[in-house]
Design a protein around this nucleic acid. Sequence first.
DNA 1: CTGTTTTTGGTTGTGCACAACTAAATTGTG
DNA 2: CACAATTTAGTTGTGCACAACCAAAAACAG
Lengths: 145, 145
Amino acid sequence: MSERSILKRQVCFSLYAASRAATAVYRPLLQELGLTYPQYLVMLLLWERDGASVRELGEELQLDSGTLSPLLKRLESAGLLERRRAPDDERRVAVHLTARGAALREQAARVPAQIAAAAGLTRAEVEQLNSTLARYTDALQAHVK
Amino acid sequence: MSERSILKRQVCFSLYAASRAATAVYRPLLQELGLTYPQYLVMLLLWERDGASVRELGEELQLDSGTLSPLLKRLESAGLLERRRAPDDERRVAVHLTARGAALREQAARVPAQIAAAAGLTRAEVEQLNSTLARYTDALQAHVK
DNA sequence: CTGTTTTTGGTTGTGCACAACTAAATTGTG
DNA sequence: CACAATTTAGTTGTGCACAACCAAAAACAG
């Protein structure tokens, strides 16, 4: 293990590299849908929770309005969603799918299987990786606050 | 496990979130050194391999010149390094630390321990996470080419 | 009800990532 | 040697991330 480079010995770098490698695998698949990877994550949420507010999306994705506002604006001008001020609380902006946005779900349904094929990990390994990462993220986030 | 949200069930999102959470823990520590996280990675490499070329740095970091060129320019104007065309092959740009850049290594030496404290994983878990991530990244990268 | 505080979303500015392209230097081939 | 192909850095343009700041709406306190 000591022959690994200075970078590869650090978990942070492995994460950083793995995350970008995963995004690179998604890129060509999502390009067919006209989405970037963060846009795809937003759509995943909206397909399950149409009408979520910007704050709720940000909570799930751990992204602030400085990232989400322009991203949502791009999805809006692509005709996939609409933003409407909530009538009962005008601070909130509810994000609603258009028919086109909702329809995209069918096409996107094929994506996860294609990714899984590329990952080269067993289902059990995926489960374990996922849960270790979740604990790691939680520990780090607790430390920042 | 099925009560996890649509996002948290996907390894790709766990990676994406974990990577950003890790960067967020580094940020205040690196700010004292005047570095961003990707800049810190470049400095880690240079502290071990002063004079590496842009191509070599990009190979290790999996970053292309579109990312590295401006990043190196910022480190250069911060007085931490210099870029010199290699006399034997003028296509290559060798990146050399300045005295200030080399000296920063002492200050940076404290960073990894502070991060480890925040991670909340045992040494064995870190080792396993790291090796699973490396295999995952390799599998994904093989699939892209 | 009035003034303050909090919540919510937005804007601006900086720094990655990465695709697409360019230019210069080197290498390979007939 | 001539000249095509390759290697190496750099530039430009788009889209995240995130800090710092702002404005409007709502909730709260006296």
